[in-house]
Amino acid sequence: MKLKPVYVYLGVFILFIAAVVYFSSTTKNSNKSVDINSQAQMPDDDIHGKMKSQGNGDMPSRENLMAGAVEKINNLKSDYEKNPNDTLKIRSYADVLIAHKPEEALKLYEKILKVDPKRIDILLQMTYMTFNQGDVKKAEEFNNRALTLDPNNLIARFNTAGLAQANGDEKKAKLIWKELAAKNSDTEVGRIASELLKQMDIAASAKSK
């Protein structure tokens, strides 16, 4: 299915909503300004000393960072293989596979759903992944399953609008986002819905000129 550029842009944007909500809540208190001493130096303790020596400077080298990432993935894989029915271990390993082995990650998420088909977090994750792979129909299936479990889930409802727009139904998308913006203005979902509506109006205005 070929999607119009504007639909792709907005669709990809809205399906990052889960990450936006999560990171906005966890970093809200980290944006306060602090005074930085220009003469300050890295502490000369055992931990920071190792960081300096590994990177031949003040920061770890790229090679060491890559090695650390590979080691983490291997450790998570090992934990999963030792505990193949532990959904927490499965989830942790699947999460690190999203970027470079999405198909394997999807299979692991499916395994979690077989154990607990009511995992809305997994269904939303699979909505995001299948959409990114260009499979809008599959993304709709996962999102609808999440809505069946929780019709009031804001992220799933938000995604419904984005998926509708990806299918060319801009009218439906706007109706859902308007409702979310009006009734949930105090939430991150409501605020982003409001911002998207403004972007859509700007795009429509530019198109009419």
Rank of each mutant, 00 (worst) to 15 (best):
N31I: 14
K174H: 05
T130G: 04
Y7G: 05
K89Q: 10
A94D: 14
Q133T: 05
V70M: 15
K138H: 13
D201F: 01
L97N: 07
V21M: 07
K209Y: 06
K72Y: 09
A193M: 00
D95P: 03
M126D: 13
A203L: 11
Y7I: 01
K52Y: 10
K77I: 05
S25C: 04
L149C: 13
K77P: 05
K28V: 08
K172P: 02
V20R: 08
I122M: 04
E195N: 04
V189P: 01
M42S: 13
K32H: 13
W177P: 02
Y128L: 07
E195A: 05
S53W: 06
K137C: 09
E110F: 00
N159M: 00
Y9R: 12
H100M: 07
A139F: 02
E170M: 00
Q125R: 09
T160W: 00
E179Q: 00
L3Y: 13
I73E: 15
T160Y: 02
S185W: 06
M1D: 15
S24G: 02
S24E: 15
E81W: 11
L15F: 07
V20D: 12
K171F: 02
L65Q: 14
P84G: 09
A18C: 03
I14F: 04
F158H: 11
L108D: 09
V115D: 12
K171C: 01
S78F: 14
E140W: 05
D150A: 01
E140N: 06
S61L: 08
A19L: 02
P84M: 12
K82W: 13
E104F: 08
E81A: 04
D44S: 08
V70D: 15
V189A: 03
Y9N: 10
K72F: 09
A139T: 02
K114N: 11
K50W: 13
K77E: 15
P84D: 14
G49A: 10
A164S: 12
N143G: 04
F142E: 10
D46L: 11
V34P: 03
P84R: 06
G68Q: 14
R62Q: 14
E141H: 07
G49E: 09
S185N: 11
N64K: 10
I120Y: 05
K118A: 07
A206P: 00
Y128G: 00
K171V: 10
I192H: 05
V6N: 09
P102A: 10
K114P: 03
N83Y: 15
I17R: 01
L196M: 09
Q41K: 13
L180R: 02
H100N: 12
K2I: 14
D79M: 08
G190W: 02
A182T: 08
V6Q: 12
D46T: 13
L97F: 08
A181T: 01
K198Q: 11
D121Y: 04
A40V: 12
T160G: 01
R119T: 11
I155P: 00
S61Q: 14
K89H: 06
V115A: 10
Q39R: 13
Y7L: 00
G11H: 03
T27C: 03
S38A: 14
L180W: 04
D201R: 10
A156N: 05
D116I: 01
K207Q: 12
I47A: 12
N83L: 12
F23N: 09
S30P: 05
V96Y: 08
S185P: 03
S30M: 14
N153S: 03
R145P: 06
V34Y: 07
K207Y: 08
S61Y: 12
K82D: 14
L197R: 07
L3N: 13
V21L: 01
N152E: 10
A99M: 09
L197D: 12
N29Y: 07
